[in-house]
């Protein structure tokens, strides 16, 4: 069970998101931002699958690639979602910041999980989420929010990025501390357990996206019949 939560669940969460977005693209909308998210989740699933092939090797660089593609894809998603030029500019800025930080961090040759990169991406995404909520409140429509797939997706991102923020921020320091001190199997298990918590949050987010999709599909079906 511990192995499942600490390793497999992460892959499952990304893959579930990929499935949910694929179904959404096939049945509801083929908008570019959804197709891009589909591609992102497929790539993220592939990256996580690669880390699962050998869990004993250092995979920090793969996770760095993961945060940069997350930052870029989600920033584009919000760029497409926003209606005002100012908000769009901020979405571009978040994406560029993530990319710039990643390119700078490549020179450091750090082999440990990049906490700053992850935290920066999460803060940027949460900031874009707040901008989206502001946009929602500025244009209140008759349509309930629960019928809006973007709302479900944004909620899942909020739960994941805000919930995991402290883990992202402290993970690098914890690894360093354990490596400098007692690099015992117990301490390593604690780290794996902590990443398992992150995986649970990621999975909760993907469950929320999938639930939203099921809800929207059932509503459409009941409206048609």
């Amino acid at each position: 069970m511990k192995f499942f939560i600490s390793y497999i669940l992460e892959f499952l969460a990304f893959f579930a998101n990929f499935i949910a977005l694929s179904v959404f693209c096939l049945k509801i909308s083929t908008g570019f931002r959804y197709r891009l998210l589909c591609a992102y989740y497929l790539l993220a699933s592939a990256l996580i699958a690669k880390t699962l092939l050998d869990i004993t090797v250092n995979n920090a660089h793969l996770y760095s690639i993961l945060y940069v593609i997350t930052g870029l894809s989600v920033s584009y998603y919000f760029y497409d979602l926003f209606t005002s030029a100012g908000k769009r500019l901020l979405a571009i800025a978040v994406g560029l910041c993530t990319l710039a930080y990643y390119l700078l961090s490549l020179q450091n040759k750090d082999i440990i999980f990049d906490s700053v990169g992850y935290a920066l991406t999460s803060v940027g995404i949460v900031f874009l989420i707040f901008l989206y909520l502001h946009q929602l409140f500025s244009n209140i429509t008759e349509e309930p929010l629960t019928n809006n797939f973007d709302f479900w997706f944004v909620c899942s991102q909020l739960i994941y990025h805000l919930g995991s923020f402290v883990i992202f921020l402290t993970y690098h320091r914890l690894i360093e501390k354990i490596m400098e001190g007692d690099y015992s199997s117990e301490n390593r298990a604690i780290l794996t357990y902590l990443w398992g918590i992150h995986n649970v949050l990621l999975f909760l987010g993907s469950l929320l996206t999938a639930s939203g999709l099921i809800w929207i599909l059932s509503r459409r079906k009941s409206q048609l019949s």
């Binding site: 909620c155 739960i159 919930g163 995991s164 883990i167 402290t170 914890l174 117990e186 357990y193 918590i197």
Partner: peptide, 26 residues
């Protein structure tokens, strides 16, 4: 081990707090 456990507890409390904030916002 104890210091690490304490830090993990703080991280978990922090994560739980932010998770609750996220749910509250929704």
């Amino acid at each position: 081990m104890d210091i690490i456990s304490q830090e993990i507890t703080v991280i978990l409390i922090g994560s739980a707090f932010f998770l609750l904030v996220a749910i509250g916002i929704i």
